[in-house]
Amino acid sequence: MKNKLIYLISVLFVAVVCFSCSDNNDNISDKDLIGIWNYSGKAVDIHFKFEYNGDEISFPEGLIPSGVFPEGIPRVSEMGINIAMIKMALPMLANKYMSQYFQGIKFTSDTEMEILMTMNDQPITLKTTYMIQKDIIKVSTQSNGFKELLGTIPVNSIDLNYKIINNELTVYLNTSYVKTLLAVVPSILKVTDLTEEQQTMIEGFVKTFSINLKTLEFGAKLKK
């Protein structure tokens, strides 16, 4: 389960990509999108904006398995994270996982794409379809590869906001979408093998986090 979630998060952050070369997304053309967009594997290429009510996010005991957070980062532990530290450390943390699994995205047409990943030290290609509306890319998770990845998790698609500036594509989850995903967590938990106590603990944390979340944009910057 943990691995699947990590894969999913990796895909969420990077899974998509695309187009046009200006802030005016209405004028983005397919030609700008099609091609291979690579992830550098550097923390500076993580897109992250975060605003939260309060100075710290507290975790219920047992929610965060030990070893998830790198050791030696002050004010970051399995019990809680200081907001300032999140802003500083999360890009590094995200990059740590993403650079392990995610290589880039290849848009093969205006409806088809391939997510280039590494799993078990083997390169794999996750083929799927996508559509674009305004500044959102909707990536289908109904392809065979995605279904295998997600298992019984009831997510039909993943939305990513995007922008292309100076030949750099930024794809990210926005606040509304993250809040919606968080609101789905209780129903996702029901199809897991977690105990009722664990589910209650996660639900409680997610609800508190969602209520206090003011801004969250989380994604990656890709280059052709």
Partner: peptide
């Protein structure tokens, strides 16, 4: 827009 449980205000979602 959606009003999540116990949230103080609506969150815009679709806009098109």
């Amino acid at each position: 827009s959606l009003l999540f449980h116990d949230a103080g205000q609506f969150t815009g979602y679709h806009n098109w």
